[in-house]
Write a protein that binds this DNA or RNA. Structure first.
Length: 116
DNA sequence: ATTCTGACAGCAA
DNA sequence: TTTGCTGCCAGAA
């Protein structure tokens, strides 16, 4: 048996991935909301960091559905092209203008509420 | 081991 | 009002 040096899936990061993957199609959430759902509350920065390494996960992480609390696509530059994130969101019915989600409150998805 | 950074958020001036 | 600074937690150098 190969000794799996793989780390546990219960890491803070994995939780972020889990929540992020649970974001329904056409919905969005904020870093703070996820952090708060994880119990860290003010560790919203970690959520963004986790998504930064989301490439570690085997599955695709809809990180484009995660924005800051202002509804601004702060991490659009991490998608390779600065327009990828906005296009993906617009493709899901999110209205974006100038990297700002207009119907942010309308499409907002709170994990602490929706995700028991 | 120590130090810095980081896709944020909240508060101060 | 806007702008900027600090605080948060965890990982990377």
């Amino acid at each position: 048996m190969p000794s799996p040096k793989k780390k546990v899936n219960d890491d803070f990061f994995s939780r972020v991935y889990e929540v992020t993957k649970n974001i329904p199609y056409g919905r969005i959430t904020s870093y703070g909301a996820i952090a708060r759902y994880l119990g860290s509350g003010k560790s919203a920065r970690m959520v963004g960091w986790a998504l930064n390494v989301s490439h570690n996960d085997r599955e695709f992480i809809p990180a484009h559905r995660v924005v800051n609390r202002k509804g601004l696509l702060t991490g659009k530059y991490h998608f390779g092209n600065s327009t990828t994130m906005a296009q993906l969101l617009q493709n899901e019915g999110i209205i974006i203008e100038n990297d700002q989600i207009l119907n942010f409150e309308e499409k907002f998805w709170d994990p602490a509420k929706e995700l028991v």
